[in-house]
Design a protein around this nucleic acid. Structure first.
Length: 410
DNA sequence: TCTGGGGTCCTAGGACCC
DNA sequence: TCTGGGGTCCTAGGACCC
């Protein structure tokens, strides 16, 4: 088994740095990108802002208290996406397989690239320099033999608050040093350990990765569940064979919004749902996808979350259909309780067009439910969906057509 | 200091099929 | 008629990631 070399690249303060490029007059000022309102949150903080203790995921209100002269810039996702795709293109000049993790992060499999591009250190430095030359943005790069260690290495290469590119920006971990590199760290550094699992582990007396590596595997699995227990025990012992995978398929598309003040009137919520569902539909169409499952998410004024979903017999990319299904789901919820956030989404995605959407539903209409795959009323659902899209009068001709295909139809 | 918006993956129970 | 088991789909919730 050959030793892999995996590179992780992570842009420094990405959204904030991009905004500083567009607004040179803000250079040196404490800048965050995020929501400005009472319920806004910091999405990214410039290094000048971090000096004040401002961090991403922090409520904007609190950030303003820490730094009264803070400049808050509204996010412009379309622009960040455009910059991101150029960054990913740049990465592909260094490795055949590039896996974007988010807009500002990617894994590159550089196993075997040394012959062409030189040692790990040269590859990392060259990538970093090219991103700077092309985009004017600094990044941090880590290289190791696993995804986990490569990501921790890029984190270790990050500049300290107050600086922006002063450190070398590169951290290479030799395979022989990887366990030591890992074991010094708190368990919360591991992928999959958040606040809840972190608390559970601490209750077991586990606080460092070394503690976790020594903890009996079976006991860990019984405390955390088989899946998570096994994964964490492997990671803590440096076992991480997750490959670098390009072109991961999108699994869901959603849009959600927190209101400035809670809504209690169903009509107001319906109006919001229509707008949001249309955005989801537009994004699905742009990607050439249809979704079979419509999701509704509600966050109540007490922050508790309720979700509802409904799976249709066929996929849709039509915002009106999504809105109508979501509205139905909303109908069963006590909105007078006070709705802070509403979200609508599509999953069970598949390619749009051809036989996948309408054709299938036409042939389903009138077919006994028992003869359909998953014979749980799929035909009825299909008929409902056709009715929703085209109205009651559309059903009759479809029945005739289904009964006698030679007659043709729509 | 009370938590935005975009996602991913996992779990668990019930329905249903073979 | 009763019983069991495996597999898949659907739904709700939850943890986590950036």
């Amino acid at each position: 088994m050959t030793i892999r070399r995996i590179l992780h690249v992570d842009m420094d303060a990405f959204f904030a740095s991009v905004e500083l490029l567009r607004h040179p007059e803000l250079a040196g000022l404490p800048v965050v990108v995020g929501g400005a309102g009472d319920r806004g949150v910091v999405a990214a903080a410039s290094y000048a802002a971090r000096v004040y203790g401002v961090r991403s995921a922090m409520a904007t209100i609190r950030a303003r208290r820490l730094c009264p002269e803070l400049v808050v810039v509204a996010p412009d996702h379309a622009h960040y996406s455009a910059v991101s795709s150029r960054i990913m293109d740049c990465c592909r000049e260094f490795a055949p397989v590039v896996e974007p993790l988010s807009l500002d992060e990617a894994f590159l499999d550089i196993t075997g690239a040394q012959r062409l591009l030189g040692p790990d250190e040269s590859i990392a430095t060259a990538l970093r320099q090219r991103l700077w030359d092309r985009e004017g943005l600094w990044s941090s790069v880590g290289v190791a033999s696993t995804k986990l260690v490569a990501k921790l290495a890029s984190e270790a290469a990050k500049p300290a608050p107050g600086l922006s590119g002063g450190s070398s920006g590169v951290c290479i971990v030799d395979p022989a040093d990887e366990l030591e590199f890992l074991w010094d760290r708190p368990v919360s550094d591991l992928w999959g350990v958040g606040p809840v699992t972190g608390d559970r582990l601490r209750a077991l007396g586990v606080s460092t990765v070394a503690d976790l590596a020594r903890f009996p595997r079976a006991a860990l699995e019984s405390h955390l569940g088989a899946g998570l227990g096994r994964q964490l025990h492997d990671l803590a012992n440096g076992r991480d064979d997750r490959p670098v995978v390009a072109d991961a398929e999108v699994r869901s598309i959603s849009h959600e919004e927190t209101f400035g003040s809670d809504l209690t009137v169903i009509g107001d919520l319906r109006a919001e749902l229509v707008v949001m569902a249309e955005k989801v539909g537009r994004r699905a169409r742009r990607r050439g996808l249809v979704g079979r499952t419509v999701h509704l998410k509600v966050r109540w004024s007490d922050l508790v979350i309720t979700t509802r979903s409904r799976t249709l017999a066929v996929g849709t990319d039509d915002g009106l259909v999504v809105a109508r299904v979501a509205t139905e789901l909303l109908g069963s919820l006590p909105v007078e309780r006070g709705v802070r956030l509403v979200g609508v989404g599509l999953s069970s995605l598949g390619p749009a067009g051809g036989s996948s959407q309408l054709e299938l539903s036409l042939s389903d209409v009138g077919t006994p439910a028992g003869e359909l795959p998953n014979g749980r009323g799929a035909a009825l659902r299909a008929a409902d969906e056709v009715r929703e899209r085209f109205g009651e009068e559309a059903i009759a001709p479809l029945r005739r057509r289904t009964g006698d295909p030679s007659q043709g139809g729509t």
